[in-house]
Amino acid sequence: MSKKIRVLIFGTGFAGQGHAEAFRDMGAEVVGIVGRTANVVDQVAQDMNIPYAGTDWQQALTDCDPDVVSIATPGGAHVEAITQAIEHGCHVFCDKPLTESGESSKQLYELAKAKKVKTAFAASFRYMPDVIHAKRLVEAGKIGEPLEVECISHFNLERDIPFGWSHRKEHGGGRLNNNFTHKLSIVTSIVGEKILSIMGEVRDDLGKAPIVEGVHNFKKRRDFIPSDLNDPSLKWGESNVEWTYTVLAQLESDLASKPVSVLFKHGGLHPRFHEDHIVIYGSQGAIYIKGHYASGPLYLHDKTNGWQELALPEDIAANVPNAEGDTEKNWRYLIRELLNDIKGEKVGHYQTFKEGSQYQQLIDLIRKNDNWVDVSQLQ
Protein backbone atom coordinates (compact mmCIF):
# COMPACT_ATOMS: atom_id res chain seq x y z
CA MET A 1 0.00 0.00 0.00
CA SER A 2 1.86 3.06 -1.29
CA LYS A 3 -0.81 5.75 -0.97
CA LYS A 4 -1.48 7.45 2.34
CA ILE A 5 -4.16 5.90 4.52
CA ARG A 6 -7.19 8.18 4.71
CA VAL A 7 -8.62 8.97 8.16
CA LEU A 8 -11.92 10.53 9.25
CA ILE A 9 -12.10 11.90 12.82
CA PHE A 10 -15.23 11.83 14.99
CA GLY A 11 -14.94 14.40 17.78
CA THR A 12 -13.59 17.95 17.95
CA GLY A 13 -12.32 18.27 21.54
CA PHE A 14 -8.96 17.43 23.07
CA ALA A 15 -9.06 13.81 21.92
CA GLY A 16 -10.36 14.56 18.43
CA GLN A 17 -7.71 17.16 17.75
CA GLY A 18 -5.08 14.95 19.38
CA HIS A 19 -6.04 11.95 17.25
CA ALA A 20 -5.88 14.06 14.09
CA GLU A 21 -2.37 15.29 14.93
CA ALA A 22 -1.26 11.78 15.87
CA PHE A 23 -2.49 10.18 12.64
CA ARG A 24 -0.78 12.89 10.62
CA ASP A 25 2.48 12.45 12.50
CA MET A 26 2.33 8.71 11.78
CA GLY A 27 2.00 9.32 8.04
CA ALA A 28 -1.77 9.13 7.45
CA GLU A 29 -3.93 11.71 5.67
CA VAL A 30 -6.71 13.27 7.75
CA VAL A 31 -9.47 13.86 5.21
CA GLY A 32 -12.27 15.07 7.44
CA ILE A 33 -13.59 15.77 10.93
CA VAL A 34 -17.12 15.52 12.32
CA GLY A 35 -18.61 17.17 15.41
CA ARG A 36 -22.04 17.92 16.82
CA THR A 37 -21.83 21.74 16.57
CA ALA A 38 -21.35 23.27 13.13
CA ASN A 39 -19.44 26.42 14.10
CA VAL A 40 -17.11 24.45 16.37
CA VAL A 41 -16.23 21.75 13.85
CA ASP A 42 -15.81 24.37 11.12
CA GLN A 43 -13.35 26.32 13.28
CA VAL A 44 -11.38 23.20 14.28
CA ALA A 45 -11.15 22.09 10.65
CA GLN A 46 -9.94 25.54 9.63
CA ASP A 47 -7.39 25.75 12.45
CA MET A 48 -6.03 22.27 11.67
CA ASN A 49 -6.22 22.57 7.89
CA ILE A 50 -8.60 19.60 7.58
CA PRO A 51 -10.40 19.76 4.20
CA TYR A 52 -13.82 18.42 5.24
CA ALA A 53 -15.98 19.42 8.22
CA GLY A 54 -19.49 18.25 9.02
CA THR A 55 -22.06 17.32 11.64
CA ASP A 56 -23.57 14.28 9.88
CA TRP A 57 -21.38 11.23 10.50
CA GLN A 58 -23.09 8.95 8.00
CA GLN A 59 -22.84 11.61 5.30
CA ALA A 60 -19.18 12.16 6.11
CA LEU A 61 -18.46 8.45 5.66
CA THR A 62 -19.97 8.67 2.18
CA ASP A 63 -18.33 11.96 1.25
CA CYS A 64 -14.84 11.18 2.59
CA ASP A 65 -14.75 7.40 2.04
CA PRO A 66 -11.99 6.89 4.66
CA ASP A 67 -9.86 3.81 5.20
CA VAL A 68 -9.83 4.38 8.97
CA VAL A 69 -12.09 6.24 11.36
CA SER A 70 -10.90 7.63 14.67
CA ILE A 71 -13.50 7.77 17.45
CA ALA A 72 -12.72 10.55 19.92
CA THR A 73 -16.08 11.36 21.52
CA PRO A 74 -17.26 10.33 25.01
CA GLY A 75 -18.04 6.61 25.26
CA GLY A 76 -21.80 7.06 25.29
CA ALA A 77 -21.70 8.32 21.69
CA HIS A 78 -19.66 5.46 20.24
CA VAL A 79 -22.08 2.68 19.32
CA GLU A 80 -23.93 4.18 16.36
CA ALA A 81 -20.87 5.89 14.89
CA ILE A 82 -18.70 2.78 15.11
CA THR A 83 -21.47 0.56 13.74
CA GLN A 84 -21.90 2.82 10.73
CA ALA A 85 -18.14 2.96 10.15
CA ILE A 86 -17.73 -0.82 10.28
CA GLU A 87 -20.69 -1.28 7.93
CA HIS A 88 -18.94 1.15 5.58
CA GLY A 89 -15.87 -1.12 5.66
CA CYS A 90 -13.61 1.13 7.74
CA HIS A 91 -10.95 0.08 10.20
CA VAL A 92 -11.54 1.72 13.59
CA PHE A 93 -9.30 3.40 16.16
CA CYS A 94 -11.31 4.08 19.34
CA ASP A 95 -10.44 5.78 22.58
CA LYS A 96 -11.51 4.20 25.85
CA PRO A 97 -14.11 3.26 26.93
CA LEU A 98 -15.26 1.31 23.90
CA THR A 99 -18.93 1.95 24.81
CA GLU A 100 -21.06 2.60 27.88
CA SER A 101 -21.81 -1.09 28.54
CA GLY A 102 -20.37 -4.55 28.20
CA GLU A 103 -23.29 -5.72 26.07
CA SER A 104 -22.92 -3.01 23.41
CA SER A 105 -19.12 -3.36 23.43
CA LYS A 106 -19.41 -7.09 22.77
CA GLN A 107 -21.79 -6.41 19.88
CA LEU A 108 -19.26 -4.06 18.27
CA TYR A 109 -16.48 -6.60 18.70
CA GLU A 110 -18.58 -9.30 17.05
CA LEU A 111 -19.54 -6.97 14.20
CA ALA A 112 -15.90 -6.00 13.57
CA LYS A 113 -14.95 -9.69 13.44
CA ALA A 114 -17.77 -10.48 11.05
CA LYS A 115 -16.85 -7.60 8.73
CA LYS A 116 -13.12 -8.43 9.01
CA VAL A 117 -12.02 -4.87 9.78
CA LYS A 118 -9.05 -4.06 12.00
CA THR A 119 -9.66 -2.30 15.29
CA ALA A 120 -7.51 -0.63 17.92
CA PHE A 121 -8.59 0.10 21.50
CA ALA A 122 -6.68 3.01 23.01
CA ALA A 123 -6.16 1.99 26.62
CA SER A 124 -2.70 2.93 25.49
CA PHE A 125 -0.57 3.70 28.55
CA ARG A 126 0.88 0.20 28.16
CA TYR A 127 3.25 1.96 25.75
CA MET A 128 4.90 4.04 28.46
CA PRO A 129 8.66 3.42 28.12
CA ASP A 130 9.11 2.14 31.67
CA VAL A 131 6.18 -0.27 31.22
CA ILE A 132 7.95 -1.73 28.19
CA HIS A 133 11.17 -1.86 30.23
CA ALA A 134 9.40 -3.62 33.12
CA LYS A 135 7.93 -6.18 30.72
CA ARG A 136 11.42 -6.91 29.41
CA LEU A 137 12.83 -7.30 32.92
CA VAL A 138 10.05 -9.66 33.99
CA GLU A 139 10.46 -11.77 30.86
CA ALA A 140 14.22 -11.94 31.52
CA GLY A 141 13.55 -13.43 34.98
CA LYS A 142 14.98 -10.46 36.90
CA ILE A 143 12.39 -10.84 39.68
CA GLY A 144 11.86 -14.59 39.42
CA GLU A 145 8.25 -15.68 39.14
CA PRO A 146 5.82 -12.73 39.23
CA LEU A 147 3.61 -13.11 42.30
CA GLU A 148 1.59 -9.94 42.76
CA VAL A 149 1.13 -6.39 41.49
CA GLU A 150 -0.14 -3.27 43.21
CA CYS A 151 -1.37 -0.12 41.46
CA ILE A 152 -1.99 2.81 43.82
CA SER A 153 -3.15 6.27 42.78
CA HIS A 154 -4.90 9.30 44.26
CA PHE A 155 -5.73 12.22 41.97
CA ASN A 156 -7.25 14.84 44.30
CA LEU A 157 -9.48 16.06 41.44
CA GLU A 158 -11.37 19.29 42.04
CA ARG A 159 -14.88 18.42 43.22
CA ASP A 160 -16.39 21.40 41.42
CA ILE A 161 -15.18 20.58 37.89
CA PRO A 162 -18.21 21.40 35.68
CA PHE A 163 -20.79 18.68 35.12
CA GLY A 164 -20.28 16.70 31.92
CA TRP A 165 -19.88 13.27 30.38
CA SER A 166 -17.35 12.17 33.00
CA HIS A 167 -20.09 12.32 35.66
CA ARG A 168 -22.53 9.97 33.94
CA LYS A 169 -22.41 6.20 33.40
CA GLU A 170 -24.49 6.34 30.23
CA HIS A 171 -22.05 8.83 28.68
CA GLY A 172 -18.94 6.74 29.39
CA GLY A 173 -17.89 8.49 32.58
CA GLY A 174 -16.43 7.15 35.81
CA ARG A 175 -12.97 6.29 37.05
CA LEU A 176 -13.19 2.66 35.94
CA ASN A 177 -13.73 3.72 32.33
CA ASN A 178 -11.11 6.43 32.38
CA ASN A 179 -8.43 5.19 34.78
CA PHE A 180 -8.81 1.47 35.40
CA THR A 181 -8.76 0.69 31.66
CA HIS A 182 -5.24 2.11 31.43
CA LYS A 183 -4.07 0.40 34.63
CA LEU A 184 -5.39 -3.01 33.57
CA SER A 185 -3.75 -2.60 30.16
CA ILE A 186 -0.42 -1.75 31.80
CA VAL A 187 -0.48 -4.75 34.13
CA THR A 188 -1.58 -7.27 31.51
CA SER A 189 1.15 -6.08 29.16
CA ILE A 190 3.78 -6.79 31.83
CA VAL A 191 2.44 -9.97 33.44
CA GLY A 192 0.13 -11.68 30.95
CA GLU A 193 -2.91 -10.86 28.85
CA LYS A 194 -5.28 -13.51 30.23
CA ILE A 195 -7.54 -12.31 33.07
CA LEU A 196 -8.76 -15.21 35.18
CA SER A 197 -10.96 -13.62 37.85
CA ILE A 198 -11.97 -10.23 39.19
CA MET A 199 -13.94 -8.57 41.97
CA GLY A 200 -14.27 -5.02 43.17
CA GLU A 201 -15.93 -2.24 45.12
CA VAL A 202 -16.85 1.23 43.88
CA ARG A 203 -18.07 4.40 45.54
CA ASP A 204 -19.42 7.76 44.37
CA ASP A 205 -17.77 10.31 46.67
CA LEU A 206 -18.95 13.30 44.62
CA GLY A 207 -22.73 13.33 44.24
CA LYS A 208 -23.13 16.47 42.14
CA ALA A 209 -21.30 19.03 40.03
CA PRO A 210 -22.13 22.55 38.80
CA ILE A 211 -23.60 22.92 35.33
CA VAL A 212 -21.59 25.43 33.30
CA GLU A 213 -21.96 26.32 29.62
CA GLY A 214 -19.06 26.60 27.20
CA VAL A 215 -16.87 23.67 28.24
CA HIS A 216 -15.57 22.07 25.04
CA ASN A 217 -12.01 20.94 25.64
CA PHE A 218 -11.84 18.28 28.38
CA LYS A 219 -8.33 19.41 29.35
CA LYS A 220 -9.52 22.95 30.08
CA ARG A 221 -12.61 22.12 32.16
CA ARG A 222 -10.94 23.37 35.36
CA ASP A 223 -10.93 26.88 33.90
CA PHE A 224 -14.74 26.84 34.09
CA ILE A 225 -15.15 26.12 37.82
CA PRO A 226 -17.62 28.77 39.12
CA SER A 227 -16.10 31.44 41.32
CA ASP A 228 -19.20 31.49 43.55
CA LEU A 229 -20.47 28.00 44.29
CA ASN A 230 -23.16 29.44 46.58
CA ASP A 231 -24.79 31.43 43.76
CA PRO A 232 -28.52 30.56 44.07
CA SER A 233 -28.91 30.67 40.27
CA LEU A 234 -26.27 27.97 39.79
CA LYS A 235 -27.67 24.66 38.54
CA TRP A 236 -26.26 21.26 39.50
CA GLY A 237 -26.02 17.91 37.73
CA GLU A 238 -26.12 14.55 39.49
CA SER A 239 -23.21 12.11 39.31
CA ASN A 240 -24.08 8.42 38.93
CA VAL A 241 -20.58 6.93 38.56
CA GLU A 242 -17.72 5.87 40.76
CA TRP A 243 -14.98 8.30 41.81
CA THR A 244 -13.20 5.68 43.91
CA TYR A 245 -12.59 2.00 43.21
CA THR A 246 -10.80 -0.99 44.67
CA VAL A 247 -10.36 -4.00 42.39
CA LEU A 248 -8.72 -7.38 42.93
CA ALA A 249 -7.79 -9.52 39.95
CA GLN A 250 -5.93 -12.71 39.10
CA LEU A 251 -3.94 -12.97 35.87
CA GLU A 252 -2.42 -15.97 34.17
CA SER A 253 1.29 -15.63 33.43
CA ASP A 254 3.50 -17.92 31.38
CA LEU A 255 6.26 -16.97 33.81
CA ALA A 256 4.44 -18.03 37.00
CA SER A 257 3.23 -21.36 38.32
CA LYS A 258 0.26 -19.75 40.09
CA PRO A 259 -2.10 -16.90 39.15
CA VAL A 260 -0.64 -13.44 39.73
CA SER A 261 -2.63 -11.37 42.24
CA VAL A 262 -3.28 -7.71 41.38
CA LEU A 263 -4.58 -4.85 43.53
CA PHE A 264 -5.93 -1.73 41.82
CA LYS A 265 -6.64 1.09 44.28
CA HIS A 266 -7.69 4.51 43.03
CA GLY A 267 -9.16 7.55 44.74
CA GLY A 268 -10.15 10.15 42.18
CA LEU A 269 -11.00 12.83 44.74
CA HIS A 270 -8.55 11.93 47.52
CA PRO A 271 -5.13 13.56 48.11
CA ARG A 272 -1.97 11.49 47.84
CA PHE A 273 0.59 11.32 50.63
CA HIS A 274 3.35 9.32 48.95
CA GLU A 275 3.87 8.89 45.22
CA ASP A 276 1.40 7.06 43.05
CA HIS A 277 3.06 3.88 41.85
CA ILE A 278 2.94 0.47 40.21
CA VAL A 279 4.95 -2.38 41.76
CA ILE A 280 5.50 -5.90 40.44
CA TYR A 281 6.61 -8.31 43.17
CA GLY A 282 8.35 -11.55 42.31
CA SER A 283 9.84 -14.57 44.05
CA GLN A 284 13.36 -13.12 43.75
CA GLY A 285 12.87 -9.36 43.53
CA ALA A 286 10.58 -6.50 42.64
CA ILE A 287 10.11 -3.66 40.17
CA TYR A 288 8.82 -0.25 41.29
CA ILE A 289 7.67 2.34 38.76
CA LYS A 290 6.81 5.81 40.00
CA GLY A 291 3.63 7.47 38.76
CA HIS A 292 -0.01 6.47 38.41
CA TYR A 293 0.54 5.52 34.77
CA ALA A 294 4.16 4.38 35.22
CA SER A 295 5.81 7.60 34.08
CA GLY A 296 9.01 6.59 35.87
CA PRO A 297 11.68 6.30 37.01
CA LEU A 298 11.92 2.53 37.38
CA TYR A 299 13.67 0.76 40.26
CA LEU A 300 14.73 -2.87 40.50
CA HIS A 301 15.14 -4.63 43.86
CA ASP A 302 17.26 -7.71 44.40
CA LYS A 303 18.71 -9.39 47.48
CA THR A 304 22.22 -8.16 46.76
CA ASN A 305 21.79 -4.48 45.95
CA GLY A 306 18.37 -3.54 47.31
CA TRP A 307 16.57 -0.87 45.33
CA GLN A 308 18.51 0.48 42.34
CA GLU A 309 17.24 2.94 39.76
CA LEU A 310 17.65 1.64 36.22
CA ALA A 311 18.19 3.81 33.18
CA LEU A 312 15.84 3.33 30.26
CA PRO A 313 17.45 1.16 27.56
CA GLU A 314 18.43 3.19 24.51
CA ASP A 315 16.41 1.11 22.06
CA ILE A 316 13.20 1.63 24.05
CA ALA A 317 13.83 5.37 24.30
CA ALA A 318 14.53 5.60 20.57
CA ASN A 319 11.20 3.94 19.72
CA VAL A 320 9.06 6.49 21.63
CA PRO A 321 7.14 8.71 19.18
CA ASN A 322 7.84 12.42 19.37
CA ALA A 323 4.98 14.34 21.03
CA GLU A 324 4.41 16.81 23.83
CA GLY A 325 2.65 14.65 26.43
CA ASP A 326 2.41 11.01 27.47
CA THR A 327 -1.17 10.67 26.20
CA GLU A 328 -0.15 11.99 22.80
CA LYS A 329 2.93 9.76 22.61
CA ASN A 330 0.91 6.67 23.44
CA TRP A 331 -1.74 7.49 20.86
CA ARG A 332 1.02 7.69 18.26
CA TYR A 333 2.53 4.41 19.34
CA LEU A 334 -0.76 2.52 18.97
CA ILE A 335 -1.68 4.34 15.75
CA ARG A 336 1.69 3.35 14.29
CA GLU A 337 0.96 -0.29 15.10
CA LEU A 338 -2.51 -0.11 13.56
CA LEU A 339 -1.35 1.61 10.38
CA ASN A 340 1.52 -0.84 9.92
CA ASP A 341 -0.90 -3.74 10.40
CA ILE A 342 -3.24 -2.28 7.78
CA LYS A 343 -0.28 -2.00 5.41
CA GLY A 344 0.43 -5.69 5.91
CA GLU A 345 3.61 -5.24 7.92
CA LYS A 346 4.47 -7.48 10.85
CA VAL A 347 3.50 -5.95 14.20
CA GLY A 348 3.40 -7.09 17.80
CA HIS A 349 0.27 -7.64 19.85
CA TYR A 350 -1.84 -4.52 20.29
CA GLN A 351 -5.21 -4.11 21.94
CA THR A 352 -8.31 -4.34 19.77
CA PHE A 353 -12.06 -4.37 20.31
CA LYS A 354 -11.54 -7.80 21.86
CA GLU A 355 -9.96 -6.13 24.88
CA GLY A 356 -12.31 -3.16 24.68
CA SER A 357 -15.27 -5.51 24.93
CA GLN A 358 -13.70 -7.57 27.68
CA TYR A 359 -12.79 -4.50 29.75
CA GLN A 360 -16.33 -3.12 29.54
CA GLN A 361 -17.82 -6.42 30.62
CA LEU A 362 -15.42 -6.46 33.57
CA ILE A 363 -16.41 -2.91 34.51
CA ASP A 364 -20.07 -3.92 34.50
CA LEU A 365 -19.25 -6.77 36.90
CA ILE A 366 -17.22 -4.52 39.21
CA ARG A 367 -19.97 -1.90 39.30
CA LYS A 368 -22.47 -4.46 40.57
CA ASN A 369 -20.57 -4.18 43.84
CA ASP A 370 -22.06 -7.48 45.01
CA ASN A 371 -18.96 -9.25 46.30
CA TRP A 372 -19.54 -8.59 49.97
CA VAL A 373 -20.16 -11.37 52.50
CA ASP A 374 -22.42 -10.34 55.39
CA VAL A 375 -20.59 -11.21 58.60
CA SER A 376 -22.59 -8.99 60.93
CA GLN A 377 -24.13 -11.99 62.71
CA LEU A 378 -20.89 -13.80 63.41
CA GLN A 379 -20.20 -14.30 67.12
Rank of each mutant, 00 (worst) to 15 (best):
Lys116Gln: 15
Val31Glu: 02
Phe224Trp: 07
Thr73Val: 15
Val202Pro: 01
Val44Arg: 00
Ile225Lys: 07
Val373Phe: 13
Gly172Ser: 07
Ala114Leu: 13
Val40Lys: 07
Lys303Trp: 04
Val69Trp: 02
Gly325Asp: 11
Ile195His: 01
Glu158Tyr: 11
Lys183Val: 11
Thr181Gly: 12
Lys219His: 13
Ala20Trp: 00
Lys113Trp: 10
Ala256Glu: 09
Val373Cys: 12
Asp315Gly: 07
Ile280Ala: 00
Val187Trp: 02
Val375Trp: 08
Ser253Leu: 04
Asp254Ser: 15
Gln46Met: 13
Val40Cys: 05
Lys183Gly: 01
Lys235Ala: 04
Gly75Glu: 00
His301Asp: 10
Pro66Cys: 08
Gly296Tyr: 09
Lys183Arg: 13
Ala140Glu: 09
Ile190Met: 10
Lys329Cys: 08
His182Asp: 11
Ser101Trp: 00
Ile9Val: 11
Arg126Gly: 02
Glu139Trp: 08
Trp57Ser: 06
Ile366Val: 04
Lys183Tyr: 08
Val131His: 02
Glu345Met: 11
Asn156Glu: 13
Asp326Phe: 06
Gln43Thr: 09
Arg367Ile: 10
Pro66Trp: 02
His171Gln: 09
Ile186Arg: 02
Ile289Gln: 04
Ile71Arg: 02
Ile71Ala: 05
Glu309Lys: 14
Val262His: 01
Arg36Gly: 05
Asn178Thr: 13
Gln284Cys: 11
Glu110Leu: 13
Thr73Glu: 06
Glu345His: 15
Tyr109Pro: 05
Asp370Leu: 06
Trp331Cys: 05
Lys169Met: 04
Leu378Arg: 05
Ser261His: 10
Glu355Lys: 14
Glu103Val: 00
Gly13Lys: 05
Ile211Trp: 01
